[in-house]
């Protein structure tokens, strides 16, 4: 387990900035004087309290399975891939949102894209190919994706047209159970 390098940190924050509007809240000091830090272990990036990260140093790298919140994985080409486990953090400061109706929640959780017919409402002024968080109508975050069309264009779209390309959904907790945290 080690802290991120300059380049790695930039890559991770760049990806997070696609979905979040306020990144400063990520590293803001907590009330008890503690703060959150980023740690890398087995090419996975964790978002964890500094005190817990310090305690975790007594566990050897091989034995350490996970700590804090797993944000995603660094690929071998140096890119960063967000996992569904990062959803609570992304959802807390989401830049753009899409709410899907009840009839659209299940298809999304089974891994399909969001079509216009399933959209209950969406945030205004959203450009295309921009990260957005998908919520149910009861404001429960279901996953995140990338917008296929801008809001104005999506209005003119037919009901079967794709509005948001899925990146991760909560169904992955079951579907990718084996590979989500290790391997």
């Amino acid at each position: 387990m080690r802290p991120l390098t300059d380049q790695e940190m930039k890559t991770v924050l760049d990806k997070l900035a696609n979905y979040m509007s306020d990144l400063k809240s990520l590293i803001a000091p907590l009330e008890d004087g503690d703060r959150y830090v980023f740690r890398l272990n087995h090419s996975r990036v964790y978002y964890v309290k500094l005190s817990i990260a310090n305690i975790a140093t007594c566990v050897s790298r091989d034995a350490l399975l996970s700590l804090g919140t797993c944000l995603g994985k660094m690929t071998k080409t140096g890119k960063f891939r967000l996992h569904i486990t990062a959803l609570p953090i992304i959802a807390s400061g989401a830049r753009h949102k899409i709410w899907v109706k009840e009839n659209g929640a299940q298809p999304f959780l089974y891994g399909s894209n969001v079509v216009k017919a399933h959209v209950g409402r969406w945030s205004e002024d959203c450009p295309e190919h921009q990260g957005c968080v998908v919520y149910s109508m009861a404001d429960v975050p279901l996953g995140f994706g990338v917008t296929a069309r801008s809001t104005t264009e999506a209005r003119r779209l037919d009901p079967t047209g794709i509005v948001c390309f899925r990146q991760a959904d909560c169904g992955e907790y079951l579907r990718d159970e084996d590979t989500l945290f290790a391997g």
């Binding site: 802290p3 390098t5 300059d6 930039k10 990520l26 830090v37």
Partner: peptide, 20 residues
């Protein structure tokens, strides 16, 4: 060279956010 201190982290963060 690791980035673990708050200042450098904030700098990178501000840079990335402004760019985005």
């Amino acid at each position: 060279v690791f980035v673990d201190d708050k200042e450098s982290m904030t700098t990178i963060l501000a840079l990335v956010q402004a760019e985005k």
